[in-house]
């Protein structure tokens, strides 16, 4: 078996197992961690296909942003902090296994130059540039219209998030000593001059 094939099957096997555990794990935090592993393995497979842009995007966007947010949400939903901290160290074995697997995958892909991964039989992209360059060039030329509109969608996302979450400032009842010092009696007391009234009877 060629080394390349071995890497592919290794990554695919981990991917499938991790994906299976995402839906079978009872603990949502475990499920989220397995999802991170699944993303990681998928990006390794993309790396094998020399789609390095997709691979990096997957890591940066999904692992870096989406999954971290996801973990935050999962942890915030459980408000009982003590209970959350209680099990913290019990995540360690699982967490370290997943971390080790990731390190192994990364070593396989990044050390590819030494292990002879680069002489591949996969069809090369037609350009000589990396595909980050190719994607960038297309985004800013042929696909500039949807690209710009996608930025408008992000803007709408920001506007919507602000509009939906921003509340008016609470009425502040704290006193300002500076202004208090300058208070004059006229500000607080109103003197009324009332005409004297006659007795009714």
């Amino acid at each position: 078996m060629e080394f390349r094939t071995f890497v592919f099957f290794f990554l695919s096997g981990v991917l499938l197992l991790a994906a299976l555990r995402v839906i079978t794990a009872r603990n949502p935090v475990h499920a989220a961690l397995y999802l991170v592993l699944a993303f990681f393995s998928a990006s390794g497979i993309w790396m094998l296909l020399q789609a390095e842009f997709l691979a990096m995007a997957l890591i940066l966007v999904y692992v870096g942003a989406v999954m971290v947010l996801f973990l935050f949400v999962v942890m915030m939903l459980d408000i009982n902090l003590d209970r959350l901290r209680e099990g913290f160290w019990s995540y360690l074995p699982l967490g370290s296994i997943i971390a080790l697997l990731m390190v192994a995958e990364m070593a396989l892909v990044l050390g590819g130059r030494q292990l002879g991964l680069l002489e591949s039989s996969v069809r090369q992209a037609t350009t000589e540039d990396s595909n980050v360059q190719a994607v960038g060039r297309l985004l800013f030329t042929d696909y500039v219209y949807p690209f710009e509109l996608a930025s408008v969608i992000l803007l709408v996302g920001i506007v919507a998030a602000v509009a939906l979450t921003q509340r008016e400032k609470r009425k502040n009842k704290a006193v300002s000593p500076g202004q208090q010092v300058f208070v004059k009696w006229k500000d607080r007391v109103r003197v009324l001059s009332m005409p004297a009234e006659k007795r009714d009877n």
Partner: peptide, 25 residues
């Protein structure tokens, strides 16, 4: 004139509408 533009247009419309529906928090 492109399936991608249709999709982007739909998303822009829908995202604004979701927010407008939810505005009366």
């Amino acid at each position: 004139n492109h399936f991608l533009s249709v999709y982007i247009g739909i998303e822009l419309l829908s995202l604004s509408l979701y927010a407008m529906v939810a505005m009366n928090r």
